[in-house]
Computed example of a mutant assay.
Amino acid sequence: MKNIVILISGGGSNMAAIVRTAEREHWEQRLGARVAAVVSNRVDAKGLEFAKAQGIATQVLDHKAFPSREAFDQALGDAISRYDTPEQPALVVLAGFMRILTPAFVERFAGRLTNIHPSLLPAFTGLHTHQRAIDAGCKFAGVTVHLVTAELDHGPILDQAVVPVLPDDTADTLAARVLTQEHLIYPRAIARLLAV
């Protein structure tokens, strides 16, 4: 069985979409994979409640309790590695995990670390992507699922979805439209990875 460990910092809507899709599409039977754990760097992350209600193991590692980014990433990596099996290393899914990871962490999980970013990468890496797309006069925006590399919001693209930018859009209305696509393409991209 391949374990999936999802990292969150907040509401966990993408995590919930992945969990629901895994159940609906019978990932355990079809792909030999299951969401084994949800880990947050924030004790107040609302997504933890959903994960617990689904019977998924949860853990909080408060990044503020660690003396350095490196120390936090080491502890986080060790927590994830508990879900590795002799046959399969765990797949690590960043789903609204609001931490920049150290190169050592990224290297430790290279090739099995995914992220979702609310823009059509390589455009608009970093924060405030929706407002930046509006300010730039973009006619389209979207979302990208990619493998994580040491460079922020880069790495091989696994899937993308495009949404129109409407004349009266605000960052919030555009974000809401993009989020509906996030919930579709992130589970799809993970299922494709698992099927390889």
Rank of each mutant, 00 (worst) to 15 (best):
M1K: 04
N3M: 01
I4P: 03
L7N: 11
L7W: 07
G10A: 07
G11E: 13
N14T: 12
N14Q: 10
A17F: 01
V19M: 07
R20T: 15
E25L: 13
W27E: 07
A36L: 08
A37R: 05
A37I: 01
V43W: 03
V43P: 09
V43E: 09
D44E: 13
K46N: 08
L48N: 06
E49L: 13
A51R: 02
G55P: 06
L61D: 07
H63L: 15
S68V: 02
E70N: 09
D73F: 03
G77K: 01
R82I: 05
Y83M: 01
T85N: 08
P89F: 03
L91C: 12
L91H: 08
T102K: 05
F109N: 05
R112S: 14
L113Q: 07
L113V: 09
L127E: 04
H130F: 12
R132W: 11
R132D: 15
A133G: 07
I134T: 02
F140H: 14
H154V: 09
G155Q: 11
P156D: 15
P156S: 15
D159L: 12
D159E: 15
D159H: 14
Q160P: 05
A161Y: 02
A161M: 06
P164Q: 12
A176T: 12
R177K: 06
L179C: 14
I185E: 10
R188W: 10
L194N: 00
